[in-house]
Design a protein around this nucleic acid. Structure first.
Ligand code: FES
Ligand code: FES
Lengths: 145, 145
DNA sequence: CCATAGTGTAACAAATAGTGTTACGGTCTA
DNA sequence: TAGACCGTAACACTATTTGTTACACTATGG
């Protein structure tokens, strides 16, 4: 039921763009993600729809941020990529009328909702600027771990 | 990257066995799960390995609980099915040496660890006996929601 | 006004994971 | 010794994600 490395990859891209400045083409982003431009456009399109980036066609075009890194949280990126639901509880649906199944599903649902709230809180707390700062600090220190 | 309805399904089966007594064959469990006996054996095998159920071959054989429902938590079932990790953070691995990617991964990792702890706490809190009681209460009340 | 460097998108291929199925071997008991 | 079980390998089916190809559209610069 779960998902993907899109969140981590897009955060990487956005922070890269925020730190190293200007516009990037799908081609260049694709290289940095070891993938190809179509996949990049597909994914970036979600971010554009959510207002995090914008694209321009034609010569000299490409992708750029619509606001500074400090105004983008991990939660923003997550929402752009996946919508409201972060985690969804894997429930069973074999005997919809069986009270045992329903009781089990209800308990699981509640547990996953708690976890989702935790995750949402954590995601909201972290801005991309913060990630950029950590990266720059560790790069300056020459750290590898 | 996530998975499956196995947790919900196995909870259903175990509570069923706990409430309605005795031994069940893979065949009967398969019918109640709208699946087939091989899938059941495959999944129940994980629970057996973890000591939650035991199986007996030969005529009159089948599956039975090794302990009462009140001594089985949702977390036990989860661990039996999936091992230590409940959620794992979907990180990126495109440029392992890039400090930005590492910073992003580190933050995501931490967020998912928090969520996993929440989920673990919730799972540990719920015993199968509790689910059984809720089910019996709602069945008696003739409730459907 | 056309060549070039871009995005947008549909259609399809490949990889992955979960699930279902068949087949056959082992084990226990009547 | 036959029948009712589990154990397991091998394979097919399905859904999702990711990668690829192809082509249409757009803006810029000469
Ligand atoms: S490759 Fe550009 S920030 Fe990692
Ligand atoms: S079918 Fe037996 S408890 Fe739901």
């Amino acid at each position: 039921m779960r998902q993907d490395g899109r969140l981590a990859r897009m955060i990487h891209v956005l922070v890269h763009m925020g730190l190293l400045g200007g516009r990037e083409t799908s081609e260049r982003i694709a290289q940095m993600l070891n993938t190809n431009p179509v996949v990049v456009r597909r994914t970036m399109a979600s971010l554009r729809q959510y207002g995090i980036v914008e694209s321009e066609g034609g010569r000299g075009g490409g992708w750029s941020l619509t606001r500074p890194l400090k105004d983008i949280t991990v939660l923003d990126v997550q929402r752009a990529l996946q919508g409201e639901t972060i985690l969804d509880a894997p429930l069973s649906n074999d005997h919809p009328s069986c009270p045992v199944e329903r009781a089990a599903n209800a308990k699981l649902q509640r547990a996953f909702e708690s976890a989702e709230q935790t995750l949402e809180r954590e995601f909201r707390k972290v801005t991309l600027a913060e990630i950029g700062e950590i990266a720059m600090a560790s790069a300056k220190a020459g750290k590898t771990g």
